[in-house]
Computed example of a mutant assay.
Amino acid sequence: MDEERLSWDDAWNITTKVFAYTNHTTLSEAMETWPIEMFQQLLPRIYMIVHEINERFCQRIWYDYPEFREQIPEMTIIARGKIHMAKLAIVGSFSVNGVAKLHTEILKTREMKYFYQMDLGKFNNKTNGIAHRRWLLQVNPKLASLITEVIGPNWIIFPRLVAVNFKN
């Protein structure tokens, strides 16, 4: 964008089609924030871009979602001397999810409810985490080896099939 290869709108269009955001906390006080002064000192050009994103987002709410005008102070990316990274991630992403179904529901109904109400299709659930088999193979290879010795190696690739056969 700085080298004039893309307009702001083209760059933003690409950004919001590429990035998805997984939120890892349901507590607003635990969501990452950066003091504006520190951010400006460390990342002056990035701060200018974040500031522009915030301005355009607030204008979008004002003009396109008048029913949310009163919520702008709660939705703004830059507020109370801080940059709110979760809000920035939500605004700049095509998809938002929590790390579990319950987590996603809490985001939708409590912590990020106005973002959810404004853009219903953006919030969804994709449970994250490591598969039990991969976890076991990595953290306890001796136990994984014992399981393989007792029931065979198919548990690694086909756990449901092995579980059904093991019950029979």
Rank of each mutant, 00 (worst) to 15 (best):
R60D: 07
S28E: 10
N140A: 12
E105C: 04
E37D: 14
N97I: 03
P141D: 05
V162P: 03
Y47H: 15
I106L: 11
G152D: 12
V162C: 12
T22F: 01
A100P: 01
A20T: 01
K87M: 05
R56G: 04
F94C: 08
F115D: 00
I49Q: 10
I53C: 00
F19D: 01
A11I: 03
F115V: 02
R160A: 13
T22K: 02
G121H: 08
K126H: 14
R134I: 10
M112L: 15
A131R: 11
L137C: 10
R110V: 15
N124W: 02
N97D: 12
H24C: 02
P159K: 05
T148Q: 13
K82W: 01
R60A: 03
Y63C: 10
Y47T: 05
K142H: 07
Y63D: 14
N128F: 11
N165Q: 10
V96E: 00
M31H: 01
R56W: 06
M75A: 05
G81V: 11
D119H: 08
K17W: 05
M48K: 15
H132G: 13
F19H: 06
I156T: 10
A144R: 05
M48H: 13
L143G: 03
S7D: 11
H24W: 09
I49N: 04
I77V: 15
I106T: 11
I72E: 09
F94V: 04
T16K: 10
K108L: 08
M38G: 05
T33C: 07
I49L: 15
F19N: 08
H84P: 01
M118V: 09
Y116Q: 03
W34I: 00
I72N: 10
F19I: 12
W34Q: 02
E29L: 04
D9P: 09
K167D: 12
M31L: 07
K108P: 05
I61S: 00
E32A: 09
A79F: 02
H132P: 04
F19P: 00
S93N: 04
D119Y: 02
T127R: 04
F94H: 08
